[in-house]
Amino acid sequence: MTTNFADYFLLQEGLTFLNHGSFGSCPKPVFQNYQDWQLRLENQPVAFLDQERDLITNLSKPREALAKEFNTSAQNLVRVTNATTGLNAIARSIALAEGDEILTTDHEYAAVENTWEFLVRKVGAKIVRAQVTLPLASEDVFFEDLVSQMSKRTKILLLSHITSPTALRFPIKRVIDEARKRGIITVIDGAHAPGLIDLDLDALGADFYVGNCHKWLLAPKGAGFLWAHPNWHQKLEPLVISHGWNVKDRKEDRTAFLDSFEIQGTQDPSAWLAVPAALEFRKTHNWAEVSKACNQRAQELAQRVAAFTKLPSLSTPEFCAPQMVAMPVPKTDPRKLKAFLLNERKVEIPVFSWQDQTIVRVSIAAYNSQKDADNLLAALQIYFADSTSNTR
């Protein structure tokens, strides 16, 4: 990367920000577009939010842009605040009964687990967590890990496309196909996937897919999408029943699915409306090459950390998320390590316990330099050298 992309972002000076995978950072031109939309809203709020005037046309453009990016129809996508919101709408729309099972893995995002746990407790259903064999190095082994846990009671298959705690890229296509053969509903949590990996939503063949635009797609916070197979459009219920739920004289290009999710009264959709600007920024700067360089830097850093810690990786590079690596470090109190990294070394990065391991998850974005990677490694070396000396 010859362009100094740090100049395009608004990150705090002096901070080593290695957590793009959680919330991302929005480039200045995209953020300006976002603020322009907000200004238009304040200039004429009634016209902006009136579905008979500007709103429908404005909201359709991001859907159309994302549909083109992800090889699907714009009629299959609706705006949601984030992936978790979309998953909540899906979960509330599927009738569960006592004895039903939701098959997932031991790598899922806590908020998503909470969503389904909340629902299964009400009806006496059950969550089955398949243990994924680590290191993840074989699609065949992953397939068997999941299929071996399928039963006649399995109603839903819930999978991350890219896992949050472990930054693994699950090979989900074959498992989705098997679930479909068995009549199992497939729900894919793609929170980290848009902008990080190529997506072909129609070819993937799931029943549902949710994603965030505020991570690797570079859009502002509050822009996500819910994709649903057309068979589900009439069955999905929005979390909020508002003006769009029972539209009279619906326009020819509109559906109940689109209206019930998009027409939600007084909401600021500016983050969603800035999605086309984010896509254009990526296109202008040849983002595939930028991502490739970032991924190489992430993998090199992971190798250096592993050489220092002597701990095995969670996967082979093939199954690791591009630009994002979860790195086991010697077991310690994650709160203390995180506080040390942030307060004493100015490094912002997720640190947490997972499966009785301490994990540091690094994200390498366009604005991250080799110096950022060096800063993290040096900080880890200092912390654990001090730990072995019983000073921490």
Rank of each mutant, 00 (worst) to 15 (best):
F257L: 01
D268Q: 05
P269E: 07
D259P: 02
L279N: 03
L239Y: 05
P238T: 05
Q264R: 08
P276A: 01
L279K: 08
T266L: 14
A256H: 08
G244I: 02
A278V: 07
Q264S: 04
R250T: 10
I241G: 05
L236N: 06
R250G: 07
F281T: 02
N246W: 12
V275P: 06
D268R: 02
A274W: 04
E237T: 14
V275F: 00
K251D: 11
W245I: 00
A271Y: 07
E237H: 12
D249H: 15
A278S: 09
Q267L: 12
A274V: 04
F281W: 15
L273G: 03
R250K: 12
D249C: 12
P238A: 09
K248V: 15
A256E: 10
D268W: 07
T266H: 11
H243C: 06
A277C: 04
V247Q: 11
R250S: 10
S242F: 12
T266E: 12
L239Q: 12
F257R: 00
S260W: 03
W272D: 13
L258W: 13
E237S: 13
P238L: 08
S242R: 15
H243A: 15
I241A: 13
S270Y: 10
G244S: 06
W245R: 07
E262I: 07
D268L: 09
F281P: 01
V240N: 11
L258C: 00
E252M: 12
D259R: 06
L236H: 00
S242H: 11
I263K: 11
V247C: 13
P276N: 02
T255R: 09
N246D: 13
P238Y: 03
W245A: 14
K248Q: 14
A277L: 03
Q264W: 01
D249A: 15
G244K: 00
A271M: 09
D249V: 11
T266N: 12
F261R: 03
H243W: 11
S260T: 03
T255Y: 10
V275D: 00
P238E: 09
D253S: 07
E252G: 02
S270R: 09
P269L: 08
V240S: 13
S242C: 09
T255W: 11
S260I: 00
A274H: 06
P269H: 05
G265P: 04
K248R: 14
L258T: 01
H243E: 15
Q267K: 15
F281H: 03
P276F: 01
A271E: 10
L273A: 00
R250I: 15
N246F: 14
V240L: 14
L239A: 08
E237Q: 15
N246R: 13
D253M: 09
W272H: 07
I241Q: 13
E280Q: 14
Q267A: 14
A256I: 03
Q267G: 04
E237I: 10
G244V: 04
S260H: 04
G244C: 12
K251H: 13
V275N: 10
F281L: 06
W245P: 00
L236W: 02
F261N: 03
A256G: 10
V247W: 03
F257T: 01
Q264Y: 01
W245Q: 10
F261P: 08
L279Q: 02
S242D: 15
E252Y: 11
A274Q: 09
D268T: 07
